[in-house]
Write a protein that binds this DNA or RNA. Structure first.
Length: 821
RNA sequence: GCGAGGGUGGCGGAACUGGUAGACGCGCUGGAUUUAGGUUCCAGUGUCUUACGGCGUGAGGGUUCGACUCCCUCCUCUCGUACCA
């Protein structure tokens, strides 16, 4: 018995070696290759050292796509690399006392082996690691160009600061408001930081979303909301007894007459100034500086505030309204100040109630009976208590009031984006050095192109305190490229989203050492035809990558007309891998190690299960029993192939043979359709299982039967090839395929095999199924009705009833609407 | 808080543009093979009901000849929320 079983351990290595030797996974750059090109990309991994099930799922999906497209006749680019900079390497370095570089390179080596065991068809000749100077030098080059264009600039921004550790903490390193290492409360601190002006591209990033027909609607929607274009007015409030002006943005200028106070951020200059001779206020501002910088925390915390003791002058009425500081106003958003209209904004309403501030209703509903006694009235409506603007509807009032402000020099119509400029500097060691030199005389100077790359020293050891780069004299000390005097290098590094924002383009030209990308290669491969990765990247990574692609285009690195302005044509966002309903994670201890599964069942079983257990975009619940089921299926197919060429004593007459052939071709059609419709591999596999079951139930008793059975077996093996490539190759060899199964042509549907002489037509009465009739596929409504009335099981439902309506859905059902006669 | 997505048997899921709900797999039950266990094979398996049949896709309402599918209200879970990647 065991001899009959398929043994993955012995065949998987064999086929992996053959694929390697034949070079079938290398994307062909040869001009003479006339196949259309197809670029399939999975989000590259962070080299944590261990391949987890999330990776396995991601790469099995991508490999199935890449292999399917090769079989469809495409010249496929399917690259892999490493997103190698980042915080975890520094954490590991602190823990193990080894430099992050050492840890990272060792992990990459380990994960290469793990990936290869899965039998993924990668073009390893294009492998990149973002921590290598030959990669990040182009990122540095790009940044210096952006500085020249004025698209990169320096500005103060808040960071999480830990005093004892003397370092900036990532949000992830702040746990319940204290430092993860020393438990000291974290507070905010301002630091000069580098930004890239993504807001200059906000409109294009928004408009080009319309091009992304191959993206899930949800991702497009999330990006649209993230960019958050809104129109409204900028309004200037004079500060009483001062030359200062408080500028605010509002989407509701129609409620301007209802302003009863102003709110500014704790870090706002007006607040800081007022606190200088107000001890109580200073304490409050200090308290505000300890709250989280996370938007979710800011939005859900208790709203607190304090009067600054100064007033602003209402631009229209000239009345004085008090200026408050409020912990929910963010300095990083807009101007760090807002006008407050408690009558028509929920948050302002709650705040006003809490602190006894005035509430002035200026909008009412059409009936004129809306009140604000218990809650804010936030809908649009008609203006009241608004002087000359009374009686205007909200929409009209927005324009009228904005116009009034404009003509009086106190404001103007403005478009505001929720999107903020991209803060790209990090106060960390393991990242791309920002290519800038600080000179006492010349200021901030970009490193000239010929001096790039600024190479990160890889031997340094982080301690958890300040970046070791700052203490590395041979790195820090340099000369000013402009005046030649002694100067210091910037010791901040780039956000790792910088590296992952352009890697998809670098793969097209991985070995190019004269430019960031090669324009011809970009034309051949870009944009990515199919991008696959986790939905957690729906906004940040995917937005930054879209932005970067446009930056590269505008830098003239490729022809935008030929390549296009978007880097990813189609996007598949895969779900997470769960165990017992929660995400598999090391910290929770609910992981399944892919290595164990591969050792026990083979890579193909692991691949088959992850593709079968859930649709790609949904979360996948891990099931050991399900894995066994996948393994059983492969065994059943393996045994099934022994029947090829054999004749049995069955009753497979001509009709049964014809039915089998129809089944084979409807299933080729269904599998192909499932592949084409969003890569629904789970549905495709179910259809292949059905085909396998149908073949298994068939016993050929003549040559015709044998031939059809063989046709079905070959189609099944061919369609399995993108999913379980080792298994399919071995089966293909067994069946005498002319080429190895993974290079075989995808089976084609023979339309003539699909034709049916008669079908089962469902008969419904009042929409409920009451029976079936056997009719010709193109039966007329009248004939179908006669056949239904002639059927005993159906006609009993028609006794004493009058048929008032007949609906025939061709090939599907007949519905009779009746009423008592 | 805000933004987005999901909820179908005991479980994972299927159902083309509104047209037979539960394909396929897991589990379970019974049987065959086996000294036994495992494996493998065969049959059954939404639920209530003796049956006829009724009821069933998170809850409630609506549109329709017909609703898992479209509309409204609500509940709930998941993801993102800008220094994790």
């Amino acid at each position: 018995m065991s001899e009959k079983l398929y043994t993955p351990q012995s065949i998987e290595a064999k086929w992996q070696t053959r694929w390697d030797e034949s070079g079938i996974d290398i994307a062909n750059e040869d001009q003479s290759d006339t196949r259309p090109s197809y670029y399939c990309l999975e989000m590259f991994p962070y080299p944590s050292g261990n391949l987890h099930m999330g990776h396995v799922r991601n790469y099995c999906l991508g490999d199935a796509v890449a292999r399917y497209k090769r079989m469809q006749g495409f010249n496929v680019l399917h690259p892999i690399g490493w997103d190698a900079f980042g915080l975890p390497a520094e954490n590991a370095a602190i823990k193990h006392g080894k430099p992050p570089a050492e840890w990272t390179y060792a992990n990459i080596e380990q994960m290469q082996v793990q990936l290869k065991r899965l039998g993924l068809s990668y073009d390893w000749s294009r492998e990149i690691a973002t921590c290598k100077p030959e990669y990040y030098r182009w990122e540095q080059w790009m940044f210096t160009k952006l500085m020249k264009k004025g698209l990169a600039y320096r500005k103060e921004a808040e960071v999480n600061w830990c005093d004892p550790c003397h370092t900036v903490l990532a949000n992830e390193q702040v746990e319940d408001g204290v430092c993860w290492r020393c438990d000291t409360p974290v507070h905010k601190k301002n630091l000069a930081q580098w930004f890239i002006k993504i807001t200059d591209y906000a409109d294009e990033l928004l408009n080009d979303l319309d091009q992304l027909k191959g993206w899930p609607d949800k991702v497009v929607g999330m990006q649209r909301n993230w960019i958050g274009k809104s129109s409204g007015a900028e309004v200037s409030f004079k500060v009483e007894n001062s030359d200062e002006v408080l500028d605010i943005f509002t989407t509701r200028p129609d409620t301007l007459m209802g302003v009863t106070y102003m709110a500014v951020a704790a870090a706002h200059p007006l607040a800081l100034q007022a606190a200088e001779n107000n001890a109580e206020l200073a304490v409050f501002l200090e308290e505000c500086s300890t709250i989280s910088t996370k938007e979710a925390d800011v939005a859900t915390m208790e709203k607190k505030g304090m009067a600054l003791g100064i007033n602003a002058i209402h631009p229209i009425t000239g009345e004085a309204v008090p200026v408050w500081v409020a912990n929910f106003v963010l300095m990083s958003y807009g101007t760090g100040a807002v006008m407050s209209v408690p009558a028509h904004d929920e948050r302002d309403y709650d705040f006003a109630k809490k602190y006894g501030l005035n509430i002035k209703q200026v909008i009412t509903n059409a009936a004129g009976d809306a009140d604000v006694n218990d809650a804010a009235y936030t809908d649009a409506g008609v203006l009241i208590h608004s002087g000359e603007f009374d009686g205007l509807k909200s929409n009209k009032a927005k324009k009228t009031i904005t116009h009034w402000l404009t003509t009086h020099g106190k404001g103007e119509q403005r478009t505001q984006f929720r999107l903020r400029d991209w803060l790209v500097s990090r106060q960390r060691y393991w990242g791309t050095p920002i290519p800038v030199i600080h000179c006492d005389d010349c200021g901030t100077v970009a490193v000239p192109e010929q001096d790039l790359p600024v190479v990160l020293p890889e031997h340094l050891q982080p301690t958890g305190g300040a970046s070791p780069l700052a203490d590395c004299e041979e790195f820090v000390n340099t000369t000013c490229p402009q005046c030649g005097k002694a100067a210091k290098r910037e010791t901040d590094t780039f956000d790792t989203f910088m590296e992952s924002s352009w890697y998809m383009n670098r793969y097209t030209s991985a070995s190019c050492d004269t430019a960031m990308v090669n324009a011809d290669a970009m034309e051949k491969w870009s944009p990515v035809d199919q991008y696959i990765g986790g939905v957690e990247h729906a906004v940040l990574h995917l937005l930054y990558a879209r932005f970067y692609h446009k930056l590269m285009r505008d830098m003239g690195l490729f022809d935008g007309d030929k390549v296009g302005s978007e880097p990813f044509k189609n996007l598949l966002t895969q779900g997470m891998v769960l165990l017992d309903g929660t995400k598999m994670s090391k910290s929770k201890g609910n992981t399944v190690d892919p290595k164990d599964i591969i050792e026990k069942y083979g890579a193909d079983t692991a691949r088959l299960f992850t593709l079968f257990a859930a649709p790609p975009e949904r979360d996948l619940e891990w099931s050991d029993k399900g894995v066994e089921g996948a393994s059983r299926f492969l065994n059943r197919v393996w045994v099934l192939l022994d029947k090829v060429g054999n004749t049995y004593q069955g009753q497979a007459d001509a009709k049964t043979t014809k039915t089998l052939r129809r089944t084979i071709h409807t299933h080729i059609q269904r599998v192909t359709h499932a592949f084409e419709q969003g890569f629904a591999f789970n549905v495709a596999i179910a259809a292949m299982m059905e085909l396998s079951n149908a073949l298994n139930a068939f016993e050929a008793c003549d040559d015709e039967g044998k031939a059809v059975f063989e046709e079905g077996a070959k189609a099944l093996v061919t369609m399995l090839a993108p999913l379980v490539p080792h298994f399919a190759c071995e089966c293909g060899e067994k069946l005498g395929f002319e080429t190895i199964a993974v290079m075989a042509a995808w089976p084609e549907v023979d339309e003539s095999a699909l034709v049916q002489d008669e079908i089962n037509l469902v008969v419904q009465i009042q929409g409920k199924k009451r029976g079936e009739i056997i009719v010709s596929p193109d039966v007329s409504q009248d004939d179908a009705l006669l056949a239904a009335q002639a059927d005993e099981g159906i006609s009993k439902w028609l006794e004493g009833q009058q048929i008032v309506k007949v609906i025939l859905v061709k090939g599907r059902l007949l519905n009779l609407v009746v009423k008592p006669a």
